[in-house]
Simulated assay, not measured.
Amino acid sequence: MINTISTQANKLINLTKRKQKINPSSTKLLTITSGKGGVGKSTFTANIASLLAKRGLKVAVIDADIGLANMQVLFDVKPTLTLFEYIDGKANLEEVFIQTKYPNITLIAGKSGYQYSKHSNSLVLARIVQDVIDIEIFDIVLIDTGAGLNDYVKEFLSISGNILALTTTDPSALTDVYALMKMLSKDKNSLMLSFNHTKNYKIGESITNSLQNLALKNRLNPNFMIEYIGNVSSSKNISTTGRLRKLFVNEFEDQLVTRELEFIVSSLLKKLNK
Rank of each mutant, 00 (worst) to 15 (best):
A9C: 06
S185H: 05
K246T: 15
V124S: 07
S160E: 08
I226H: 04
F84D: 01
K28M: 00
N14K: 12
L149D: 14
S160H: 04
Q255I: 04
Q99G: 03
T241G: 03
K199H: 06
A49E: 02
L166S: 00
T100Y: 10
L81K: 15
D176T: 08
L107Y: 05
L142R: 07
E95W: 01
K28P: 00
T208E: 13
D176Q: 08
N209H: 09
K58Q: 06
S25M: 00
K236F: 03
G146E: 02
N70R: 08
S50G: 06
V232E: 04
I203N: 08
N92T: 08
L107C: 07
T7Y: 06
Q212R: 02
P79F: 08
Q99W: 01
Q255P: 00
F263G: 09
D187V: 08
E136Y: 00
K58N: 08
G148F: 12
F252R: 04
I135W: 02
F44Y: 11
I159T: 04
S25C: 00
D139F: 03
T100P: 06
I137S: 01
S233I: 09
A91Y: 10
R243F: 12
R245H: 15
S235L: 07
K90D: 11
I48W: 01
S122R: 06
L12H: 14
L30G: 02
S266M: 12
P79I: 12
I133E: 06
L174P: 00
K58F: 01
I5T: 10
I13D: 05
L68G: 05
A49K: 01
Y228S: 12
I264R: 02
S172G: 01
L184R: 13
D144E: 11
F263S: 11
F156V: 11
N3K: 13
K188L: 10
R127W: 00
I5M: 13
V124M: 10
L180N: 07
Q130A: 10
G110W: 02
S50L: 09
A109W: 01
L142H: 07
K271E: 10
N237A: 14
K90A: 07
N10C: 05
D88M: 04
L216H: 13
D187F: 09
I238A: 10
V177Q: 03
E260D: 04
N213Q: 15
L220S: 09
P24N: 04
I48Y: 00
T43Y: 02
A173Q: 11
A9I: 15
M181D: 12
M1Q: 15
T100G: 07
L268E: 06
I159K: 03
S190A: 09
E155A: 08
Q212D: 09
V124I: 15
T258Q: 06
S239Y: 09
T16D: 12
A147N: 07
I105Y: 09
K101R: 11
I98W: 03
D187P: 05
D65F: 08
I98H: 05
K182M: 12
